[in-house]
């Protein structure tokens, strides 16, 4: 056996070793021809992705043109085809437009704030001593690790009208300053979570608090990869810190920033858990975003799954559109070959 395989490998005939290897596999008990191995390994993955992600994506698209009654949900009737009805009704609904606005404005503000704060902290971590930076990293990891539902709960408690610590802290400000900047002096009993605008102030804080650590740690990892000589040269040339950041750090970390931006956009467009907790469920319709609106339409009585699906389709399309540019860049960069 060993002899023949050595012979075959040395042989000039290209088809011979292939056949030889095939028979050897068989002898070793796998029984699979070489070309089939990767496909067999991929079967479970492909089945799961196709069945649980791609097929439902098509389904949600189809369902957005259907009316799905309770009888359909119970499985005793077929869905009724209603054409563009779900969409036309949706576009006439004020809640849709306010949800859309909330989603987009929230994502824009939160993504930019997270990136700026995260990058600043990443740069800071890079300049701290080893012990100090480990200490800070452990602190920010704790914030990052808090489950979204617990994030919402904690911040809801911090902003509690009666016993919340934020209102206590705001009362500490000198009255003139508080009035000048925030328009009022007495914050006792201020209900932050009643009105859509202030709910979103809390939500932005919550999400930035929980997601800047990831940006900071990733930026730090990127910074560690930049050769120190570059900074040395910049320093010798008398470059200002801001200029060094713009001319050296930023260009070199551009691929990292691209990924971080795209991930932040994906995460912040569909925030659900934190908002759900802050609003105490789908209650205040003015403060809905698209995820929560879709959920409320589909699962609050009476269930309007068709409309919920239409909202989900709108959310997906916006997200794909926004991320398309980045995705293309990533596909190009990533060495897929």
């Amino acid at each position: 056996m060993t002899d023949t395989s050595t012979l075959a490998r040395g042989g000039a005939n290209t088809s011979a070793p292939r056949r030889r290897r095939g028979s050897r596999n068989h002898a070793r008990g796998s029984g699979l021809p070489d070309w089939a191995v990767p496909y067999v390994l991929l079967v479970p993955g492909i089945v799961v992705i196709a069945g649980l992600l791609l097929w439902p994506m098509i389904q949600v698209f189809v369902m957005s043109f259907q009316s799905i009654s309770l009888r359909v949900i119970r499985g005793v009737a077929d869905p009724e085809w209603v054409g563009l009805d779900n969409y036309t009704k949706l576009f006439e609904n004020d809640v849709f437009w306010s949800s859309l606005r909330n989603t987009v404005v929230f994502a824009a503000v939160t993504v930019s704030l997270t990136l700026v704060v995260g990058t600043a902290v990443g740069v800071l971590l890079n300049r701290l001593s080893k012990g100090m930076s480990t200490f800070v990293i452990i602190g920010i990891m704790c914030a990052w690790a808090v489950p979204p539902v617990a994030q919402g709960t904690i911040w809801r408690w911090l902003f509690d009208a009666e016993a919340g610590i934020i209102n206590w802290a705001l009362n500490l400000l000198p009255d003139w300053l508080s009035t000048l900047v925030l328009g009022r002096a007495d914050w006792t009993g201020e209900p932050w979570l009643n009105d859509a605008w202030s709910v979103y102030v809390v939500l932005v804080l919550t999400v930035v608090w929980a997601s800047f650590p990831f940006i900071a740690v990733s930026v730090l990892a990127g910074l560690k990869g930049i050769p120190a000589e570059l900074y040395e040269a910049a320093r010798v040339d008398g470059s200002s810190p801001w200029r060094t950041f713009r001319k050296i750090t930023f260009p070199l970390l551009k691929p990292v920033f691209a990924v971080l931006t795209i991930l932040s956009i994906i995460w912040d467009f569909k925030v659900f858990s934190q908002l759900y907790v802050l609003l105490n469920g789908p209650t205040n319709r003015e403060a809905f975003n698209l995820s929560l609106f879709s959920f409320a339409e589909a699962f609050k009585a009476p269930p309007k799954m068709g409309t919920g699906a239409a909202i989900a389709v709108v959310l997906t399309l916006i997200l794909l559109l926004v991320t398309a540019v980045y995705t293309r860049q990533m596909v190009k960069q990533e060495d897929l070959a």
């Binding site: 991929l42 492909i46 992705i49 649980l52 992600l53 791609l54 097929w55 439902p56 994506m57 389904q59 949600v60 369902m63 799905i68 949900i73 994906i266 467009f269 569909k270 659900f272 995820s291 879709s294 959920f295 589909a298 799954m305 919920g308 699906a309 989900a312 389709v313 959310l315 997906t316 997200l319 794909l320 991320t323 995705t327 990533m330 596909v331 990533e334 897929l336």
Partner: peptide, 23 residues
């Protein structure tokens, strides 16, 4: 396959809630 992997990660999972619930 790799490109599909990348693209499905862009799909908001919340959007799949309704069909997955029915399935």
């Amino acid at each position: 396959f790799l490109i599909t992997l990348l693209i499905v990660q862009m799909i908001p999972t919340e959007a799949l809630l309704i069909p997955l619930f029915l399935n």
